[in-house]
Design a binder for these strands. Structure first.
Lengths: 112, 112
DNA sequence: GCGACATTCAACCGTCTGGTTGATCTTTTC
DNA sequence: GAAAAGATCAACCAGACGGTTGAATGTCGC
């Protein structure tokens, strides 16, 4: 079934740097909430809220196993938004290098 | 020079349906503020604010000629954001059909 | 220069956001 | 079964957002 995730919610979720950083982290592996929160100078509750927003947007899913809640990236939710944007720009095809530069910049990886 | 437009601003600008509709309208042609506002049931001042947000995000440019301010789409500002999103999904290449379906849906073009 | 037009400014309002803290709930561990 | 860990809830706060209205600014046309 075609994703009914509203663009509103997806774009709004992506508009926050903390949430984009979380998504980047989840690219590598699924993570528990506490581990997601670890690199941020912010309360666990704040991270929990961010994860809620990402979940509502369909960008991640959360599964509770025991007392640990695992967060998993759901990149499909990005497809509609991606299609929308490409419709405007008709940009060059996927450029992974550019993307990795972004991740470095966003995660503050410019120091070394 | 590579666009320094912050992803924050671009995604936040895209998170509002009115603003996305405005961008869609500007795909077809440059428009004056009053003409942009015409199809919306909203004050001119509100539209003016939306246009300001789109301008700050770099998604449009505004040029004043006489007493008319012309709005022009600047799709380049979408490139960075598009690259970012594609990095996650590595979706199928540009799908114009899907995009047009979106425009129809978003602009409420289903009524006839 | 006066009136009409195009657009923004300024003040205001209700709501959402992003953060805090402390309490709460569930699950694990001993 | 009590303590500790994982995570959320609840209440609160400052600030931004999306909208309104009315006044102000600037420009065109006569």
């Amino acid at each position: 079934m075609a994703t009914p995730y509203a663009l509103d919610t997806v774009f709004a979720a992506l508009a926050d740097p903390t949430r984009r950083a979380i998504l980047s982290m989840l690219l590598e592996d699924d993570m528990a909430v506490t581990d997601v929160a670890e690199p941020f100078e912010m309360s666990l509750a704040a991270i929990s809220k961010h994860l809620m927003i990402l979940t509502r947007a369909g960008l991640i899913s959360q599964e509770k196993r025991g007392r640990v809640k695992w967060c998993k990236l759901e990149p499909d939710a990005l497809r509609d938004a991606s299609v929308w944007m490409q419709g405007f720009g008709q940009f060059e095809p996927v450029n992974l290098e550019a993307f990795e530069r972004f991740l470095e910049r966003e995660l503050g990886g410019d120091s070394g």
